[in-house]
Amino acid sequence: MKNVNLENKITVITGASSGIGAEIAIEVAKKQSTVVLIARNIEKLQQVQARIKQVADVDVILIAADMSQPHMIDQVYSKMKSKLGHFDYLVNAAGFGNFDPFFEMSMTTAHEMFDLNVLGLMYFTRLIGRDMMEAESGKIINLGSVAGKIPTPKAAAYSATKAAVIQFSNVLRLELAPFNVQVMTVNPGPVATNFFDIADKDGHYVENVGSFMLKPDELAQKVVSHFEDSKKDLTLPFSLNIASKFYLLFPSIGDYIIMKWGDKK
């Protein structure tokens, strides 16, 4: 894995209180980056801060906010801007999922998923991205999902949010290229985090996909290893990356395979 040095850099991470966001925070801190941790739960953020202090001597800024609420996003940005002035990396990791069949799930839940997974991400990216454009440097890392590339039953709304994140990132990459600002999407398969406490309440999905399950710390290491290069898409594990390319080329065959063997929820 490449040696990355983030000394004197500032990394902003949403969804930083647990899971992938927390592990990326720890990894960039090891690389000597100042870290801004954003999530709703300040106590959990403090726990991540304590973990960081065990492995690195860097500045850690905690901000408690609901990143689905535009007025809170404005407050977060203003607080960071006045304190730090600029931003080198933005990791949009805040989000949640629900694996209920679409016709049974609450539309309130669908709205909440889009507000956080998509609209909040877009709103915050708009604020940070303008600063990066002005500085003509920076990188935005958006957490998509294999679910945004390969359809599976019981994930219609969640998959739609992640497909939106992926396509938003693809277009954003083109718009920001003239300003020397890079965009990368990270599209993991199932990751062993508390994401499934909400998404998979009965535990069937986690039980069935054990062979594909990624470890969050290892995923974080791979993500951070690409901070300084021009990687555009990181889809893991390798087997699901290949599967996503196969589905794009042969969707009819892909649908057949998914309906016969791929529904693990």
Rank of each mutant, 00 (worst) to 15 (best):
12 V>W: 01
13 I>S: 03
15 G>A: 14
15 G>H: 04
15 G>W: 04
18 S>W: 00
19 G>E: 00
21 G>Y: 03
22 A>H: 06
24 I>Q: 04
24 I>V: 13
25 A>P: 03
26 I>Q: 08
26 I>T: 11
27 E>F: 13
28 V>Q: 02
30 K>P: 03
30 K>Q: 09
32 Q>D: 07
33 S>M: 10
35 V>R: 10
37 L>E: 02
38 I>P: 04
38 I>K: 09
39 A>F: 03
39 A>K: 06
40 R>H: 05
40 R>C: 08
40 R>K: 11
41 N>V: 11
41 N>Q: 09
42 I>P: 01
43 E>I: 15
45 L>K: 08
46 Q>Y: 10
46 Q>P: 03
47 Q>V: 14
47 Q>K: 15
48 V>F: 06
48 V>W: 00
48 V>S: 06
49 Q>T: 09
50 A>T: 10
52 I>Y: 04
52 I>H: 02
53 K>C: 11
57 D>M: 14
58 V>R: 10
59 D>P: 12
61 I>S: 07
62 L>Y: 00
63 I>K: 11
64 A>I: 05
64 A>M: 03
65 A>R: 08
65 A>W: 00
65 A>T: 08
66 D>V: 14
66 D>S: 15
66 D>N: 15
71 H>V: 15
72 M>P: 02
72 M>A: 14
73 I>D: 03
74 D>C: 14
74 D>N: 15
75 Q>C: 13
75 Q>P: 07
76 V>T: 11
77 Y>F: 15
79 K>L: 11
79 K>H: 05
81 K>Q: 06
82 S>K: 12
82 S>C: 09
83 K>H: 05
83 K>P: 00
84 L>I: 10
85 G>Y: 05
86 H>A: 14
86 H>F: 11
87 F>L: 11
88 D>L: 15
88 D>A: 15
88 D>M: 14
89 Y>N: 07
89 Y>K: 12
90 L>Q: 08
90 L>W: 02
90 L>E: 03
91 V>F: 06
92 N>H: 08
93 A>H: 02
94 A>Y: 01
94 A>I: 09
95 G>R: 08
95 G>W: 00
96 F>C: 12
98 N>K: 14
98 N>I: 13
98 N>Q: 12
